[in-house]
Design a protein around this nucleic acid. Structure first.
Lengths: 275, 275
DNA sequence: CGTGATCTTGATGCTCATCAAGGCTAGTGG
DNA sequence: CCACTAGCCTTGATGAGCATCAAGATCACG
């Protein structure tokens, strides 16, 4: 049978533990609410590594990941792959009212999921102002925020920064579901997985890891990561934890204040001249 | 006063036209529904280029863009910028139940918006199965899909491909709201805007444009784009229109079929050995 | 006519992809 | 037991893609 990832060896955590940790991190829940969530605690499916929780274009049933890691990804016609996001215990799929998924979700390790369609319906029955419904909405918001973070990584960061930023983010998320310290956790990913997420080649991913290792910022052994010198890592990656849980406090380094400036010219028309 | 972008010179389109085009592209609406939408046809705000429709961390009121272009973006501490998405007429912000926005929304041209908080409430009052509510949900889904497309551009495409892909996508979206042919439309963006979206430097953006020009794939003059040889552009950018409006039909070039293969070994544990 | 925004061009070097090869480990089958 | 294979990590060499610095051109505006 083997021990599912995300459980201490030999000790089985209550199934909905991760989901409850995550939801209450986003929004205070009453005792009743958590009981509500726990009702869904029945493993509905298990997936082998490489199996699809959901294929491109399918509408998946509402599920929460109980244990294991998965990835949202799209395969390009030339066979290369882009991973959009990693799904950790406590993360949900198919919860939105119209849960079309425009990317496949693939298990990276053994994955156990629980069906939460009843829970979702119950939550929406409680009304959009109920703590539980709000927690779901905040989870969706956080998920979008993760996509935006990923865009910034790919668009504006170097390979080292991307890796550091991603690992810090994963550490935060895992810590929230009590699967890790922020600076030491299990990382059941191959270097190829990381490369597919960070838009790098496998070879360069390897060299990037070695560089961070060499600079004493990282230890990566036996599928375990240890982040060293968190302050230097934060500085290198320009990572702030609040980027995950709250709307990013305006960074506004030298963002010009636009409001008071009614521009002489409308760029929309400036573009109307030949160049 | 000047002519707002998105209107034929001298002819003012009905305000909610774009929104109605877009929503009915996503989901068939009854005559009643469109009347419903039209009720919101009152310009609530105007923004100068550079003004923020919404700052990072704010919860914006529910709005639809009536005319003009805007951009979701985040400014990095070093002053560089990453644009996540362009917002066109018919696009909405703050419609989700929990509309926190984790990025600023900035007007790129003159922008007119209409308040649709009443419309949104009315739609949700009709129930999640009503066509109008479904159209809203599909719009949100499409928006996420645009983010995924953007991630693929940044992660796996070259500068030329990124530009071609983005322009094809914009053409599709504009055509849907009757603001363009797919191959000829107004593009009120500076090269810097494009660079900020595509994760390139301004200089390289310029050279990329010139390369596509030189290969007779593009004309870019007077803020107008003309896409030439659409077939070659589609092939270059690996763009399929269905990526926008429907969940991408499984591309599955040589995606191995995983299901039937129960792997000998669990990679999750493979990672547990030292390397 | 100066200023600022935008587009353009050249020169230089770093970052990263690609090709090629080799190593380690676990599992497989003779 | 020992080739043999497959998956993953590692390393070197080479060149393309892109960033950066610097400068100039054009146009709109005051």
């Amino acid at each position: 049978v083997g021990v599912a990832s995300g459980t201490v060896v030999g000790v089985r955590r209550p199934l909905m533990e991760a989901a409850i940790y995550k939801l209450s991190r986003l929004r205070d829940l009453s005792e009743e609410d958590t009981v509500f969530v726990r009702q869904a605690a029945k493993v509905s499916d298990r997936f082998y590594p490489g199996a699809d929780l959901c294929r491109e274009g399918e509408r998946p049933p509402a599920r929460v990941i109980v244990s294991g890691w998965a990835a949202r990804a799209r395969v390009l016609p030339d066979g290369r792959r882009q991973i959009f996001a990693f799904l950790l215990p406590g993360d949900m799929i198919g919860v939105q009212p119209q849960p079309t998924i425009t990317s496949a979700v693939t298990a990276l390790t053994h994955v156990e999921t629980a069906d939460i369609s009843l829970l979702r319906d119950a939550a929406s029955a409680l009304g959009p102002r109920s703590p539980l419904a709000e927690a779901f909405a905040l989870a969706a918001e956080m998920e979008e925020n993760l996509l935006l973070n990923h865009i910034v990584r790919l668009g504006r960061q170097t390979a080292c920064q991307r890796l550091a930023h991603l690992l810090l983010e994963l550490g935060e998320r895992l810590a929230a579901v009590h699967e890790a310290d922020e600076c030491h956790f299990r990382l059941p990913l191959t270097q190829e997985n990381l490369a597919d997420a960070l838009g790098l080649s496998l070879v360069h991913m390897n060299r990037t890891i070695q560089q961070l290792r060499h600079e004493q910022l990282l230890r990566l052994r036996c599928g375990q990561v240890t982040l060293l010198q968190m302050d230097r890592l934060h500085a290198l990656a320009d990572f702030s934890p609040r980027q995950l849980w709250r709307p990013t406090a305006a960074v506004t380094s030298e963002a010009r204040s636009w409001e008071d400036r009614s521009p002489r010219r409308d760029p929309s028309f400036a573009a109307s001249r030949p160049y």
